[in-house]
Simulated assay, not measured.
Amino acid sequence: MRRIVLPLILGIAGFAVLASLGLWQLRRLEWKEAMLDEIARGIAAAPVELPAAIDPSMKYLPVTMTGTTTGDEILVLSGTREAGGGYNVVSGFVTDDGRRIMVDRGFIPQDDRRAPRPAVRLRVNGNLHWPDEKGPSTPGPNLAEGIWFARDVPAMAAQLGTLPVLVVANAIGGDAQGVAPIPLSPQGIPNSHLSYAVQWFLLAAVWAGMTGGLIWRITRRPV
């Protein structure tokens, strides 16, 4: 029996650690689902007038505003299931109280890339957003063509000469100029905690199986 004590202790300890990591991921899953529900309720709430002071803590806040696009825009490489590849149009926008911000007006197909979109007066309903899309492998923008590969609020604001404030439109009043709004949705927020939990539990099962196999082999050896 003394021969199996150490493998048994290591087996139990390893199983406990791996199983506890799986349980922790299940708790994270519960937390993430509650957060996504809260975000969904916030996105769908009644819009308020664009606040006088804006900061990233207001992410997803539903707002409404009127103003005029500047005619300057950034095209962010995008796509939809229905239309395939295309671009999101991020326009400079001057609100009626004189603030220069940005509006992600929505999607255009590739063929409409060079269609004229001059300054136009609009009423915009949407949500404040600070997307986290730029990773270490994301290419920099092609400024010559005006094409970006991720929405980077500070960089886009510097390019368009606006405040670092982005409103993602869900409804446009006025001439939308062929741009179809793509409302924010929590469906785009990653939630992989369930798959992580399954991986930890599978590792725990493998560890238990290997421990059992090792103990069986030890007990089969002659003393």
Rank of each mutant, 00 (worst) to 15 (best):
L10M: 13
E73N: 08
P154G: 03
A144C: 02
N142H: 06
E73T: 05
I101Q: 08
D37T: 09
A83L: 08
L128Q: 07
P131T: 05
G106E: 11
G174F: 05
V48M: 10
R99Y: 06
D132K: 13
F107G: 03
Y196P: 00
L61S: 06
T70G: 01
L6D: 03
M35L: 15
L10A: 10
R3L: 13
I12C: 05
I215A: 07
A52Y: 14
V168F: 03
R28V: 10
W200M: 12
A40Y: 04
V223W: 08
V89K: 15
I54P: 10
I147V: 12
I101N: 07
L202M: 14
Q25S: 00
D37Y: 01
I9F: 12
R81S: 11
I108K: 06
I43R: 11
G212T: 07
A46C: 04
V90K: 12
R100Q: 13
T70P: 04
T70L: 09
N191Q: 15
G86P: 02
R121P: 01
E38C: 04
G106H: 11
R117H: 06
W31K: 13
L50I: 07
W24F: 06
V165K: 11
G22H: 11
R221Q: 13
A169K: 10
G14M: 09
W148T: 09
R99T: 01
A155Y: 01
F149C: 07
L128D: 07
E133M: 07
W24P: 01
Q199Y: 12
L61G: 02
A197Q: 14
F93W: 14
F93N: 09
E73Q: 14
M210A: 10
D111P: 02
W216R: 14
V5A: 07
T70W: 14
A119H: 14
D104P: 03
L122A: 00
A197K: 14
P190G: 02
T80N: 10
H193A: 03
R81Y: 01
V153E: 09
R123D: 02
W148P: 00
V206P: 01
G11N: 08
S78P: 02
L77E: 15
G140K: 09
G98Q: 12
T80P: 00
R151M: 11
Y196S: 09
I215C: 11
A197L: 10
L214M: 13
G92S: 08
L21W: 04
N125C: 01
Q187G: 00
L75Y: 08
A53M: 07
N125Y: 05
Q159R: 11
N127C: 05
A176Y: 05
D132S: 02
A205N: 02
N127Y: 00
Q177F: 03
A169Q: 11
Q199H: 11
A16H: 05
A46L: 10
V198C: 11
I147Y: 04
L23R: 05
D111I: 05
P164E: 15
Q110G: 05
E38S: 09
A19S: 08
A169M: 08
P131M: 09
A176H: 10
A16G: 03
I4K: 04
D37M: 11
I74K: 11
G42Q: 15
D152R: 03
A204W: 15
Q177V: 00
T68P: 00
P51C: 01
T138K: 14
L77V: 05
A83Q: 14
R105P: 04
I108F: 02
I215R: 04
P190Y: 10
D55E: 13
N127V: 06
T69R: 13
N88K: 14
V94E: 15
